[in-house]
Design a protein around this nucleic acid. Sequence first.
DNA 1: GGAACATGTCAAGCACGCTTTACATCCTAA
DNA 2: TTAGGATGTAAAGCGTGCTTGACATGTTCC
Lengths: 77, 77
Amino acid sequence: MINRIRELRGERGWSQADLAERLDVSRQTVNAIETGKYDPSLPLAFKIARLFGLSIESIFEPEPQAATPMVSRHPME
Amino acid sequence: MINRIRELRGERGWSQADLAERLDVSRQTVNAIETGKYDPSLPLAFKIARLFGLSIESIFEPEPQAATPMVSRHPME
DNA sequence: GGAACATGTCAAGCACGCTTTACATCCTAA
DNA sequence: TTAGGATGTAAAGCGTGCTTGACATGTTCC
């Protein structure tokens, strides 16, 4: 999942700590999401979208494509 | 987090198992999300929205309001 | 040089998202 | 009446989302 959070935060001149406070999460959480360590929960994604006044779809984008594996998704059936 | 999944699924005449298969998750996951036991991950929310051809915002809605607790969120600081 | 801030990262711990297996109930069809 | 589908729920297990605390680095400003 790719996101534009760092860009949106930068436009507003906020530090990761500033954003974390506005979202009521830890600074490490903001950093982990920006650096792609993990995706936010759906409720947090809503908070982020509302804070920036944008839709979730305009901030987050599912991975280019988690290519369908060469093996069956339902082996031995 | 409130969602309209059961309604959208019903309109299409799909069982929970049908929907689960289309989303590539277990039937219990669909059931748990419909019955409000937990919220889907952000990637699954995207899958759901795309399957129904709707925006995430038009399917999910953050709780009416998780009322601000009477106690400080940052005690002893 | 030293203080202060911004960012990145690690570790431990807890709660949640999702899995498989299994069982119970309800409803409809034959 | 029995079989089958649809739904609800439970337990155990694994990985992720988020927390606090801590430390390292780079930058800026005195």
